[in-house]
C-alpha cells in the first residue's frame, strides 16, 4: 500500500503520425527494392534496379505498343454464357461478373487494331487479371476473328500471351479453342501473313501448346514463366524440386524455342524491325 499515488496521465493521442505511403511505393518482387511508383510507371513497369518485368494490364500493353497509344478495339462485348453451368467453390457466372467489375473487361483479352511506327497491325493482348488470363470460348473466338480479319486485310498479327492456360470452367470447350485458333493460324500461314507471338509472364498450358509457340517469330519478355506443364505439376510428377530458372524465357531461348528475349522498352523497336522485314 503506497501513501502517495501518482495519477497516471492518459496517453495523449497526437493524431495520425504515420505518413500514408500506401500506393505510392512498391516493392520489387525479385530484388525487394522499394521503388517509387511513379518511377516504376515511367519505366514501363520494369524495376529500375533489376529489370524485373512487372505484370501489366492488356490495356497498358496496347497503349505502350501502338503509336500515341491509340487503337480501335474489336469484339468488345463478347462474353461467356457459362455453357456448363459450372460451379466450384463459387459459381462461374458470379466469378465472371466479379471479374468484369474489377477489370472492366468481359473476358481475358482485348483485340485491337492500330499502327506501330505507322504500320498497320492487329494486336490481341491477354489480360492476366481476368481468371488468370485463361482461355475459354470468348478468348478463342476473339483471337480467331482477329486472325480472320488479318487474313482479309493482310494485316500482321501480334498476340501477346499472358495466361495460365485453358479455362477449366468451360471444360472441353476451352480445349477445343486450341484447335480452333491453330486451324485459323494454318490459313494465315498459307496466306503468308505474318504472325508474331509475344510471350509474357506467365504463358503456360493450352496457350503455349497452341498459338503462343506458332509465331513466325516467337519472342518473350525477360524472366517470363513459359511452359507446357506448370512447375508445380512437374514437381509433383517427378518428385523433385526444379532448378531455378527452369521454364523462364532465358531457359527457352537456350533450348531453341524463342527467337529473342526483348526488354519491354525495346519491344516497339523490335516489332517495327520485324514488320519492316515482313514488308509493311
Amino acid at each position: 500500500m503506497t501513501w502517495f499515488k501518482k495519477e497516471k496521465t492518459p496517453i495523449i493521442q497526437l493524431g495520425d503520425r504515420t505518413v500514408r505511403t500506401e500506393g505510392l511505393w512498391i516493392k520489387c518482387e525479385r530484388c525487394k527494392q522499394i521503388i517509387w511508383k511513379k518511377d516504376l510507371e515511367s519505366n514501363l513497369n520494369v524495376c529500375p534496379a533489376c529489370n524485373f518485368h512487372f505484370k501489366i494490364s492488356a490495356k497498358e500493353r496496347l497503349e505502350q505498343l501502338f503509336d500515341r497509344g491509340e487503337f480501335r478495339e474489336y469484339d468488345k462485348g463478347l462474353h461467356s454464357t457459362d455453357p456448363l453451368h459450372f460451379v466450384d467453390k463459387k459459381p462461374y457466372k458470379g466469378r465472371l461478373k466479379e471479374m468484369h467489375s474489377t477489370t472492366g473487361l468481359w473476358d481475358a483479352i482485348i483485340s485491337a487494331e492500330g499502327k506501330i511506327s505507322g504500320k498497320p497491325a492487329s494486336i490481341c493482348a491477354m489480360e492476366v487479371a481476368f481468371i488468370s488470363g485463361s482461355m475459354g470460348s470468348v478468348v478463342g473466338e476473339k483471337i480467331t476473328r482477329a486472325i480472320e480479319r488479318c487474313l482479309k486485310n493482310k494485316f500482321p498479327l501480334i498476340i501477346i500471351s499472358c495466361s495460365g492456360g485453358a479455362r477449366m470452367q468451360e471444360g472441353t470447350l476451352s480445349l477445343m479453342q486450341m484447335a480452333k485458333i491453330t486451324g485459323a493460324l494454318a490459313r494465315l500461314d498459307e496466306a503468308r501473313v505474318p504472325y508474331i507471338s509475344v510471350m509474357t509472364d506467365p504463358t503456360t498450358g493450352g496457350v503455349t501448346a497452341s498459338f503462343a509457340m506458332l509465331g513466325d517469330l516467337n519472342m518473350a519478355e525477360p524472366g517470363a514463366l513459359i511452359g507446357f506443364a506448370g512447375p508445380r505439376v512437374i514437381e509433383q510428377t517427378i518428385r523433385q524440386k526444379l532448378p531455378s530458372g527452369f521454364q523462364r524465357s532465358e531457359f527457352l531461348l537456350e533450348h531453341g524455342m524463342l527467337d529473342a528475349i526483348v526488354h519491354r522498352r525495346e519491344m516497339r523497336d523490335y516489332l517495327t524491325k520485324a514488320l519492316d522485314f515482313f514488308g509493311y
Binding site: T208, G227, V233, H255
Partner: peptide, 23 residues
C-alpha cells in the same frame, strides 16, 4: 509433364501438330 519434355518443347510439339493436322 517432365523436365526433358519441357526442354525439348512439349508445347511446341503439340502446337505444331494442331496446326499441321488442320491442313
Amino acid at each position: 509433364p517432365g523436365i526433358g519434355a519441357e526442354e525439348r518443347g512439349q508445347a511446341e510439339a503439340i502446337a505444331y501438330n494442331l496446326r499441321e493436322m488442320a491442313r
